[in-house]
Amino acid sequence: MLHRVIQQFGLRVQSINEVEDSHSSTVYKCTLSNSENVFLKIPYTKLKCQREFEAYELLKGSISIPDMLDYWSGDLECPGAFLLSELKGKPLTSEASPSVAFQVGVLHAEMHTIRPPAVQVLTGIQNEFTNWSNFVEHQFYSFAEDVRDVLDAQLYKQAIVKFEEMKRWLPSPDGPSFIHMDFRSANIIVDGNKVSGIIDFESVRFGSTEIDFTKLFRDFLRFDTTLYKAYREGYKSIRPLIDLEMVLPFYRFTDAFNSIGWCKRRGIEKNALFLKQNVESLKKFLL
C-alpha cells in the first residue's frame, strides 16, 4: 500500500522511515530526492481519513498545522492518504520552558475558539456537544466491554460505580468547540523555544473543551507546577479557562479506564507497559 501511495503522489523518494508513536494511522517520514522531508499518512479507516481531511480544511489559516500538500481519497483497499509538510522540531517534552508551555496554552485555546461551521456540511467530524453527557457515557461503556476481560470482577465493578458517581458532579459543558481528543505531548511539535504546531486529527470532534485537557495533563502539565501555571496563563490570554480541578479527576479516571480497553483492542502484549500504567492509575482513583 505504501508503494501505491508513493506512486499516487508521484514522489521521488530517497529514504523512508515509519513514525512509531502513531496509533490511529500509519505514518512515514520521507526524504525526497531534493532532500525535502514530507510525511505520508494513511489512516486506518475511511471515517478517520474524512475527519482528518475536514480538520485540515477547518484549521487552515487559523491554527499552526502542517500543510496538506496532496490528498488521495483512496479506493476499496486503501482508506485514503495525505501528503503533509514537515513541522520543524520535535515532540513536546517535560524539559520544555515556561515560554513553550505558555505557547501550548495559546495554541490550545485558539483551537477551542473554532466553532462548528454555519454553512459547511461535515460528514466526518461529528458535533457531540448537544448530547455531551451521552457521548462521554457511550465512550466509557463501549470500552467497558473490553475492560471487563482485563480487570478482576471486583475492580471492574468498583470502576463502574465510580464512573456513575463522578459523572453527576460534572459542570455544564463548555462549547461547542473544536476538540482534538488526543492533545498530548507527542502531537505537539516544538522547535527550540517555539511551538511549531499540532498534528494528528483523526479523532477530532466538536464538543466540550473539558475532555481535551486530560492527556496533556497526564503527559506534561502534572510534572511541573511552573509549566502548568504558564500553560494556564497562555490559555486564558485567548479565552476563559474552565475549572480544571473540577473536571480533571473525572476525565483522568475515564482516560485510565478507556485506555485499558484501548490496550485490549490493540493488543495487550504489544501495549503491556501502557496497560500496566493505566491499571495502576485506575487503582489509585478507586482507592
Rank of each mutant, 00 (worst) to 15 (best):
209 T>G: 05
212 D>R: 15
224 D>P: 02
230 A>T: 07
230 A>M: 06
220 F>C: 03
227 L>H: 09
225 T>H: 15
211 I>Y: 08
234 G>K: 11
220 F>G: 07
219 D>K: 08
233 E>T: 10
217 F>R: 05
226 T>D: 08
233 E>G: 05
211 I>F: 11
216 L>P: 15
224 D>C: 04
216 L>A: 03
218 R>P: 01
214 T>H: 10
223 F>R: 09
231 Y>L: 01
224 D>W: 12
230 A>D: 04
233 E>H: 14
218 R>H: 13
209 T>L: 08
229 K>N: 11
207 G>Y: 09
225 T>Q: 15
234 G>T: 04
223 F>H: 12
220 F>Y: 14
220 F>E: 00
226 T>F: 05
236 K>N: 08
221 L>D: 01
215 K>E: 08
214 T>R: 14
236 K>H: 10
229 K>H: 15
209 T>A: 12
230 A>K: 13
230 A>L: 05
207 G>K: 12
227 L>D: 06
215 K>H: 11
211 I>H: 06
224 D>S: 10
213 F>D: 02
224 D>Q: 10
212 D>W: 14
210 E>P: 05
234 G>F: 04
236 K>L: 07
232 R>M: 08
229 K>D: 10
211 I>P: 01
227 L>P: 08
236 K>R: 15
209 T>W: 06
223 F>Q: 04
221 L>A: 06
222 R>M: 02
222 R>Y: 06
